[in-house]
Design a binder for these strands. Structure first.
Lengths: 343, 343
DNA sequence: TTTCAACACTATTACGTTTTCGTAAACCTA
DNA sequence: TAGGTTTACGAAAACGTAATAGTGTTGAAA
């Protein structure tokens, strides 16, 4: 139970000053070889490692990135974290993760807590509640304090900062187009409530694809799921009444649930009903049938977001008051992963 | 772009000492009401918040928990994080997450980095490589420095510390017993390589269940998957040759792959082949047929682990050199979630 | 008048680093 | 030997906070 040794202790033990110890360990030329080697040997023996907190305080940077996401038990978000962690790690950064649980208050609390010196910058995706309220003061505040923020996936145009997104609209367009190309005429959209930014965009893409192909746009073919649990019933109803031949779901869960509902009614996927899901996750790959998806590489998003943040951090460190602030929005390309649920 | 205000700045601005500002903000009685209110008003106006890093340095605790896990894009691990974060959050702790990617070196590097003052304690699950090597010096070292460690799921008996596990052996026993109870006689085990601690234990439970029921133990019915990609072929072969009537898989992926392999050969699940998986994740719930699983509540594990760690942290803070070190191993109960893949 | 307490505030220290500046001693040069 | 330059080290400040230990003034009790 030997506590970590500090410069002070080493200095005392070797009867030199703290400065001498510090300089010796950083191989400063100011220190004579004899002393330097002695100190280094001693430090090595006691396994001296500089205290990160003290360094953070002194350097006024923590080499830590704060991540705030709605939830973590979620394939997409965990792949994003994976991507962030990878780049962060390669650049000597750690990541500290906070979950908003899709709650505005928790998002605000977490941001305030982290903004008080704990981290150098944020990577975040907005909570549902925040998007609903449209209140982004906590983010503005952080940015005004000079702390860089990178938003991904669930972003808002009301905040000026770096962003990483996919082109939800054209990805949705492409998916629906592919259904149309396969002869599907009555395509339902299973989506979330409107205030989630990505949900809105995907709906736009869906609509545009229909109209561009001269297909009728029918409000009744769009169902907005609030609660996953009731999802199956609602979808079942849709299948029964409307004689639809394809489903475009904004996430895997809605897609797999649609398939289950179809199966229960004796419909075959893909023969009677084609299904495409947004987000290429684990469910699509292992469901029966496997599901055609719009791949939305979370890992790549994480990589890019981390890269953008770190670049800004290292840059702003160089010449402090540049204030260029030429914020970028990077768009990650998507593509259709064709599987058994379409033919 | 106003940087965060500090005590010093407030003091200078109001022409009082730093101590006065500090005490005013903490409502000390030593400070006269007039001054106190003036300071508080000023601080509020400039949105003063104490700097976490400075507090950490002063208090010699960071209120941060370090988590080291093999991977994050993994249902079980992300639920554990969710559980940890929840309890941590309730107790004013943050979590900083590092991924070992199942690599020994990365695990060591991450631990060393975090151990240098960044966190107050660890919660971790061993990487495969670490378990294979059997080298735990990095963990011993951290513990010797007085930093508490809680291990979960993938643990080792070679390290004395708090642990949270499930009773893998008896959970496996129970699962296999349930298959036997349903009349299955030729039960295959699809597992991982041996050095993963939990894999070994689950195999033991499987074996014991067979023997206790007077069923023959057949080495050939146990297949150890090294690489998920080759899994389907191997399982297919097993089904062909051995005329088995049930599969007990140590994770969801192996289970769903077994089902796919069976389907391809025209076998029906559960009629011709019953399947049980370890770990109740998202795949089991949404696969077709849904899969009977051994629920292994990651969230609960996370909750317990965080609780144990925080309790130890707060305790050791009270009377520093108690050295009781009565380490506990908590066992999280499991239960069988019966679904369509067994009957 | 002395003493002592209460009041209202400040100085200092400590946490662990790094770095700037300073300085004594030794050496070199003319 | 006076003056200058190296060499080798130390003191102190700085990062931001909080707690302990003062300090000086006032007023009241002895």
């Amino acid at each position: 139970m030997k506590r970590k040794v500090t410069l002070k202790q080493i200095a005392k033990e070797l009867d030199v000053s703290i400065s001498t110890v510090s300089k010796s360990l950083r191989n400063s030329l100011e220190i004579g070889e004899e002393t330097r080697l002695k100190v280094q040997a001693f430090a090595k023996f006691y396994n001296y490692k500089p205290n990160n907190i003290a360094l953070s305080l002194k350097n006024r940077k923590t080499k830590t990135i704060g991540i705030i996401i709605p939830e973590i038990v979620h394939y997409f978000f965990s792949t994003v974290i994976n991507g962030i962690e990878q780049v962060a790690n390669e650049n000597g950064y750690s990541v500290i993760i906070c979950l908003s649980d899709d709650s505005f208050d928790k998002e605000v609390r977490n941001m305030e807590m982290l903004a008080n010196g704990s981290i150098d910058g944020f990577i975040m995706s907005l909570s549902k509640e925040t998007q609903l309220k449209g209140d982004f003061h906590h983010i503005t505040e952080v940015i005004n304090q000079g702390m860089p923020v990178v938003m991904f996936d669930r972003v808002t145009s009301e905040i000026l900062c770096d962003k990483v997104i996919i082109d939800d609209k054209s990805a949705a367009y492409e998916a629906v187009q592919s259904l149309i190309d396969k002869g599907r005429k009555k395509i339902a959209l299973v989506t979330t409530v409107d205030y989630v930014s990505v949900g809105k965009l995907r709906t736009d893409g869906y609509t545009k694809a229909l109209l561009d192909n001269g297909l009728p746009f029918n409000e009744n073919l769009i169902i907005k799921i609030e609660d996953v649990d009731t999802c199956e019933v609602i979808i079942g109803k849709l299948l029964e009444d409307k004689a639809i031949d394809a489903v475009f779901a904004v996430n895997e869960l809605f897609a797999v649930t649609s398939i289950k509902a179809a199966n229960k009614m004796g419909l075959n996927v893909p023969e009677d009903l084609a299904v495409i899901a947004f987000t290429d996750g684990i469910i699509s790959k292992y469901s029966t049938p496997t599901i055609t998806t719009v791949s939305q590489s979370g890992k790549k998003m994480g990589n890019r977001a981390a890269k953008m943040l770190i670049e800004r951090l290292e840059l702003e460190h160089k010449d402090d008051e540049e204030e260029d602030e030429n914020y970028k929005t990077e768009v990650i390309e998507t593509h259709l992963v064709e599987r058994e649920s379409t033919n």
